[in-house]
Every structure is written in structure tokens, then in C-alpha cells.
Amino acid sequence: MKPLTIILLTILLSVTNAAAEEVTIAIAANFTDVARILAKRFEQQTGHATRISYGSTGKLYSQIEHGAPFEVFLAADRARPQKAEKEGLAVTGSGFVYARGKLVLWSLKESLFEQGERYLNEGDFHHLALANPKTAPYGLAAQQVMQHLGILERTRPRLVRGDSIAQTFQFVATGNAEAGFVALAQIKAWPGENGSLWEIPESYYAPIDQAAVLLNKGRDNPAAYAFLDFLKSGEAKQVIQTYGYGVE
């Protein structure tokens, strides 16, 4: 290799390094496992770095509203990203749906139920876990399912609310709640036993369209744009689908 080529290559490499930025992302808890994989691939492909905070959509939104340094927001619903755009917290027109979530009823115990619907109707449990409907879209969907089945009122005293879908999952995974409403993606990533699983018909709850949006703080960060582009790529969609989400 000629010295000149080496010099040019060195310059080129240092230039790409200089272009590498860090993007700070707020991600809804249900997407944690997928996000870890996506972030790794994104970093490998682009050389950008990511810094991710996980939490319930409502909690993250309230943090964004109070000036949290997030540049990209991956919510578990459409409403909060829309609200962020409307309130001037996000770049108008940057929102899009990156995944459609699926709600399942899950228990650690094998053969606790074959038909989740009958299990819920019979109500033979001490504690049924769901995420806080006020802050977590999956919790809201769970509430809609119980309303649909007409069991919400009589089940209410036995409902335990997780702060996010991650805590809800942990209530069920430790066996402290016999069953709970969690995201299908969490089950796909769960290394333990399958337990009992009921994939709830999507007609029982309003669609969990999970939208992403570019926040104002990321307006001048190329890495923020790059991450959103990556999220729309075929490769990312494939990973998202593997984890049990619907993609458009």
C-alpha cells in the first residue's frame, strides 16, 4: 500500500469517527429486548452510539415534558408521540408506527390454563397482574380485554399493577402473581419455561400501535435521524417481527 493511500485512509477513518454521534433514546419497557438487539446492530452498522432509558410510556412522556435529554422516543402507543408533536416537544411529522404490539395472558405454571378466556371468567386466582393502565398502554389494553369479557369489576380487588410492563412481567415471572397480562415480545425473550400462554384475540382490545418520534432535542443530531431510518429498514422490521410484533 502506498504511503499516500495510508494517509488518505487514516484521514477517512478519522472523519467517520468524528461523524459518530451518540443518540439518547427513551423506549417503552415492552420493547426492551428488541431494542437491545436493534441498538447493537445499529451501532455496528453506523458507528453511532446509543444511550437508552426504559420505562412505561406515560412515565417517559412526563420526563420528556420536564426536559429529559431524550432525542428519540419509542412509545407503546400513538397518543403520546402525537401529543409530543402537538405540544411542540417533537418534530412535526416525524412520527410513525414502528410496531404493533400483541397482548398475551401468561402464567409461569404450565397447564394452568388451556383457554385463557375461560380461566379469566372462572377467576380462580389470588392475583392477576397488569401494567398500570394510566401510564402503560399494555395495561390499558389489558383493562379493555377485561371490560370486553365483562369481568373487570369483579376482578378489580385482585388486580396488581406493575409500574411498567417490565415490572408486571417480573410479578408473574417470580410466581408472585399467578397470571398476568404482558407483551408477547417479553415471552419470546424469556429464557425460562413457557408456562401457560393465551394469545388474546386482537379484536378484544384497541390496537397497540407503537409510534416513534423525533424529539426536539434530537433535531440537530444525525445519529437520531440515522436511528429512526434504521428502525424503518427491512432488517429492523424483520427483528421486530421475530419478537412477535406486527409491522406495516
Binding site: 412505561s56 406515560g58 412515565k59 412526563s62 398500570n132 380487588p157 396488581v160 399493577r161 402473581a177
Partner: peptide, 20 residues
Amino acid sequence: GNIPGETKVLSVAIYDHVES
């Protein structure tokens, strides 16, 4: 588990209100 009347104490109620 944030159950009203059973485990939803003041500090949790405040947290809940702030988050919502």
C-alpha cells in the same frame, strides 16, 4: 402491586399521580 386500599400507600399514590 399498587392495590387501592391494600397496598397503595401515600408515597405510591403521589408517584402514581405524578406519573399520570
